[in-house]
Design a protein around this nucleic acid. Structure first.
Length: 576
RNA sequence: GCGCCUGUAGCUCAAUUGGAUAGAGCGCUUGGCUACGGACCAGGAGGUUCUGGGUUCAACUCCUAGCAGGCGCACCA
């Protein structure tokens, strides 16, 4: 139940019938009419800008119009306690006690309060992480992993159908180098030769040794005398080990994909050739040359003719190569083929979560999806910005070459899953995060996660003290409560929850949820402390009982916190 | 050179998808625990929202021209 939508509909109905009676003139487009949350300093619950929007077509001042409209609104709605007009022409409504009873009765046992029930059900494919299967995940990956996971949870909360997919780039040069590294480590273990440290293409990380050891132990038939003889088999085994590590890391973060799609499979099934054939037919692929980028060192640049995709047709700044000099496909080519398989699986909307270093890739891949589907905005890409690691007050640079990067496993061991998720989600995905290892650990008390969890734990403690289960439904026959000003302040915050979900869903910006939960918790902690001086604000009475209005009040708050935390994939312990 | 992201209080960040006197945390500062859980709360100081134009009844938000920082730019994925 979104009361802002409810009142927007009500007001528009009122306007329409007033317009029929020629009392007012309506503009052609009613979209800019809003019903919103008023700033807290006003003693009211909802506000609308209608008078200002209608000012022009009616050739009246907003204030004059507001007087007419506010009378009309008041006559037509019995939940209004008071209606007032403010400066530029806002109409502010204060709702009466009947309204709050109606509202609470409506949502008290609604586990999905806040979800957008009016939304049509669609099929989504969310692709995220998709890190190269050449080793465990590091901190940077975790942000994208959490973002993708929470966007998926959010869609599911809104009753959408979601597939979470990981695209495994198990093809190409990086995999070859990776497999070679595993091979050389295996040779090292078998005392055949020392691992070369001077080859920058190889992966020197410690984990490669473990992978090699596992493969040796489990495959006694494998003969490590010649790389070429076993490279094919070893690639499969190495990637498998790598995926095992990655799945372990994802599991550390509380992330589970539904599906792992393999690039090798796509190449093997000739899907690349097929998709290029289709694009050629539609004139999106041609032979041409591209210019070297200016402003950087181009001394190695060799201009040559190659197969290009015409992404400039869709707003990209240059056309993009799909074939390398040696005639093999570029990464982009197989990715286009992969996206073609997504389209063939009949999803309504594709979502990709990318790391900041791949942001420059967005235009070409959305262009490709548009070329293939003929639909704009079929693919939506969200970027998870950099996580800047700070240790002891100094930036900590990670180097994949040296193998000294901080893995997800390190992160979880230090900070924990819930804190990692909450901290990463608490900021907009478009801004870089300073992740100060020592600080997050030391100052765990200042962590916003605990602030929200503490709120839930406090509510739980009340239920525990009166021997009730916080998870049970509330059964109250008559809703005839008269809440105080301080309680209504929190109930108002509760009315914002569906709006928060709506905006979060529309913009795919999960940070709005932790921000909201923090604010709600803050209001609650504040109220809780009032109980020290004002006995009427305490939940449990002297004879160890609780009144129905307080039960309802607590239950609503805990419900919202719980569903918010569920979307974030974070626990709500009843005791801390 | 081009593209994308960012620029808001001393620091880290929000801002109801264009609304009213721009809000939190940290830090600084003054107070509050015989109390349903102090991992908490109440108060104070702190702002030319990077700059210049424009659109609008209304701009942190949109457009435009700049400035600063980050990321990226075929033959890696």
């Amino acid at each position: 139940m979104n009361i802002f939508k409810l009142y927007r509909d009500k007001i528009i109905d009122i306007l329409k019938s007033a317009s029929k009676e020629s009392l007012i003139k309506l503009p052609e487009n009613l979209n800019s009419i809003n019903v919103d949350i008023p700033p807290s300093k006003f003693n009211c619950d909802i506000s609308t800008n209608v008078a200002m929007v209608l000012s022009k077509p009616n050739e009246k001042s907003p204030i004059a119009l507001a007087e007419i409209l506010s009378n009309l609104i008041k006559e037509n709605d019995h939940y209004i306690d008071n209606i007032s007009i403010e400066k530029p022409g806002f109409i502010n409504l204060k709702l009466n006690k009947d309204f709050w009873n109606y509202f609470l009765k409506n949502i008290i046992n609604d586990k999905n309060y806040g979800s957008q029930k009016s939304l049509n059900q669609k099929k989504y494919l969310v692709e995220f992480v998709s890190a190269n299967p050449t080793g465990p995940l590091h901190v940077g990956h975790s942000r994208g992993a959490i973002l993708g996971d929470v966007i998926s949870n959010l869609l599911k909360f809104n009753n959408q159908i979601v597939t979470k997919e990981y695209y495994v780039n198990d093809y190409g040069n990086q995999i070859l180098h990776f497999t070679k590294s595993v091979y050389l480590r295996a040779c090292e273990i078998l005392n055949k030769e020392v691992f070369p440290t001077d080859n920058p293409d190889l992966y020197p990380g410690e984990y490669i040794k473990h992978i090699a050891k596992n493969i040796i132990d489990e495959n006694s038939n494998l003969n490590f005398n010649n790389f070429d003889d076993i490279s094919r088999e070893l690639t499969v085994l190495s990637v498998k080990e790598s995926i095992k590590l990655i799945k372990f890391n994802l599991n550390n973060l509380g992330v589970n994909h539904d599906n792992f799609a393999s690039e090798t499979e796509i190449v093997k099934n000739n899907e690349v050739e097929e998709v290029i054939k289709k694009l050629k037919k539609d004139n999106f692929v041609y032979n041409g040359k591209i210019k070297a980028p200016e402003g950087e060192d181009n001394s190695n640049w060799v201009e040559r003719e190659q197969l290009l995709f015409k992404s400039t047709d869709f707003g990209d700044d240059k056309d993009r190569p799909i074939q390398k000099a040696d005639k093999s496909w570029t990464y982009f080519a197989s990715d286009v083929a992969y996206h073609y398989t997504k389209l063939n699986r009949k999803y309504d909307l594709l979502i990709n979560i990318l790391g900041a270093d791949h942001a420059g890739y967005i235009k070409r891949i959305t262009a490709a999806v548009e070329a293939l589907s003929g639909e704009k905005n079929k693919l939506i890409c969200k970027v998870s910005q950099l996580v800047k690691l700070i240790k002891d007050g100094k930036p900590f640079k990670m180097s994949k070459r040296k193998g000294d990067y901080i893995t997800v496993e390190d992160l979880i061991n230090e900070v924990g899953k819930d804190a990692t998720r909450f901290i990463m989600l608490n900021r907009s995905n478009d801004v870089e995060i300073d992740f100060d290892f020592s600080k997050v650990k030391e100052k765990s008390k200042d962590n916003p996660l605990y602030y929200v969890q503490y709120c839930y734990a406090r509510i739980s403690s009340v239920f525990r003290n009166i021997n009730q289960n916080i998870n049970n439904e509330i059964d109250i026959k008559k809703y005839d409560f008269d809440y105080s000003k301080d309680e209504i302040k929190i109930l108002k915050k509760i009315t914002e929850w569906p709006k928060c979900i709506e905006v979060t869903t529309e913009k795919f910006e999960p940070h709005r949820i932790p921000v909201y939960l923090y604010e709600l918790s803050s209001d609650f902690h504040s109220y809780w402390n009032m109980g020290k001086e004002d006995e009427s604000k305490r939940f449990i009475t002297k004879d160890n009982k609780i009144n129905d209005d307080k039960i309802v009040f607590l239950k609503i708050i805990s419900n919202v916190i719980k569903s918010g935390m569920n979307i974030l994939g974070v626990e709500t312990p009843e005791k801390m």
